[in-house]
Design a protein around this nucleic acid. Structure first.
Lengths: 326, 326
DNA sequence: CTGAAAGCGCTTACAG
DNA sequence: CTGAAAGCGCTTACAG
């Protein structure tokens, strides 16, 4: 491969100047010399070695993202939004897919530290992820879910409690006689918030909270849980599922049970993925502001150097669609 | 951060020996010294800097994957399968999402060359991707779609023509009076193969080929195309869509038109994504052997060093489900 | 079996 | 404005 030395020789100058030209600094270069370097580089098809640059500069211009499951459309959309925000800032995004496996999540964490990414955005499978590895390495971290504020990391998230409240209130307004919650794994801060919001809305309406179940955030698991549930005679008339992915599993289960949506069962999801709009029937959902979250994360990590630790809540939007009976 | 020098000092030896220990070679180290190095490394929490290692060793132990659209579940599953195969070989997978944008595809190509990935797996948006950048850099490439064999790159793919033939033949066997093809973009080798297979099956059955349209490989585009199609009085009774993603768009369009599937319209997809099994109704599809393709690609690129250029066809499997009328 | 040293391809004070 | 040189943290012939 062509190196900076090759370019310098052909342009009759030093590697330092080649570097100054390609980085627009930190010293300036006379127009004539600059042009000779540019010409030589073009003729030789020179592309600076990013690996060498990273070692020398002490930063890799790359950000690591860890998601629980890249096959989940929400995380696919999130990854794309973050990648866009990263490219805007000339950073590369490395995506680590935990594939619903905590061990894999740890491997990605270690791998990111070893690869010397400049910062990390984490959506953990665990309620209390161990981020000491990042902290030892001095890597700034932003998590995209609720987290214990005593840990020294920023979090960007929406208020799940409020979101669950508003989704539940919407189903109540439809007048459904019984409403259930299909929650995520029971041991996470997010699930606790969803449950609180759901419970509060029900209590405000003077309704008992009797139908609550949980599944992992996977279509197959949710489908299995919903199938068993809907086959019981006492199943709820409406259901709030805490992810779109789970809601898709519910739509499938309803189909398998011969229940029509929303005629026999109303469904509301959460995430607001593009796919929710193309479900059969189209899925009512709570839309998360992915682009805003992505951009804010990159601002904190890249533009502000990860110095600040913040805990910010973003707005959400309830999107009524056929599945809830609208 | 802790460096190899810190470890060497604490263990009373040289950085060379630290390297020998961590790489199990290329020289061996006495058990006693090895133990001292290991102890020192553990006490200091030493993690070798992969960037420095890459620069020095001349390889990054990373593979680049470029996909047209990571939000498409098929590519999500493909990426996961390839990542598994890569991790099996202690390689990192970098995922470049072209987001249905040819310019973005080129940027990822350049970025992978600059990052000095050791090899590339490409699923291009274009029929004739320009891979000269990779060839200049001496990077081995495997493409996962049909490609002009005169180019010096390997391709791993299934026989779309045969697959389209078998899907069409299946719909014919159901006795549907008219069968349509919702193809991908018209100017690609894959689309031409799908069309040929579809046409051949129709001609063998003495049927005219009258219903052929195309859309991009996106749910929204397919939905739009299908909506217009299904609203015409002469729409086909059954439809073969060349990706699951397009088929999902068709299911949605049928719902919007008040057509029941398979009662009014039978649908078959292509790809065999996990999501196809949870569609409403479950989607009949042609399953691609993702894991086998992923593993073979990594064998060619990593285990065999990318020396060989091969063009291999993989087997597929037709999966009948409710949507086709089974 | 082990260590001193060169080298990977950049960046960046330091001198001029 | 420009160049010689040190340094980033590893690996790996080369000597011993």
């Amino acid at each position: 491969m062509i190196t900076g030395r090759d370019v310098a020789e052909r342009a009759g100058t030093s590697t330092a100047v080649v570097s100054y030209v390609f980085n627009n600094g930190p010293r300036n270069v006379s127009p004539a010399t600059r042009q000779r370097v540019l010409d030589a580089a073009a003729e030789l098809n020179y592309r600076p070695n990013v690996v060498a640059k990273a070692l020398s500069a002490g930063r890799t211009a790359s950000i690591g993202l860890i998601v629980p499951d890249i096959a989940n459309s929400y995380f696919g959309e999130l990854a794309r939004a973050i990648e866009d925000a990263a490219l805007d800032r000339d950073n590369l995004l490395l995506i680590g897919d935990s594939a619903m496996n905590a061990e894999q999540e740890r491997l990605h964490m270690a791998s990111f530290v070893d690869r010397r990414v400049d910062a990390v955005i984490l959506v953990s499978l665990l309620d209390e992820p161990d981020i000491s590895l990042f902290q030892q390495a001095g890597l700034p971290v932003v998590v995209l879910h609720p987290i214990d504020e005593t840990k020294n990391v920023s979090s960007l998230t929406i208020d799940y409690e409020k979101a669950a409240h508003s989704a539940t209130a919407h189903l109540l307004a439809h007048g459904y006689p019984s409403i259930g919650l299909l929650n995520g794994p029971g041991d996470s801060a997010g699930s606790r918030q969803h449950l609180r919001g759901f419970t509060q809305a029900m209590e405000e309406a003077g309704r008992p909270v009797t139908h609550v179940r949980s599944s992992s955030i996977s279509r197959a698991d949710a489908a299995e849980t919903a199938l068993a549930w809907l086959r019981e005679s006492e199943h709820p008339r409406a259901l709030y599922a805490t992810t779109d992915e789970q809601a898709f599993g519910v739509l499938y289960a309803a189909y398998e049970c011969g229940l029509s949506v929303p005629g026999d069962l109303a469904v509301v999801g959460f995430d607001g993925t593009a796919h929710s709009g193309f479900a059969v029937p189209p899925l009512a959902t709570v839309k998360q502001p992915v682009a805003a979250i992505a951009d804010r994360a990159m601002t904190l990590l890249v533009d502000l150097g990860g110095e600040e630790t913040v805990h910010e809540l973003f707005d959400f939007e309830f999107v009524p669609r056929a599945s809830c009976g609208c």
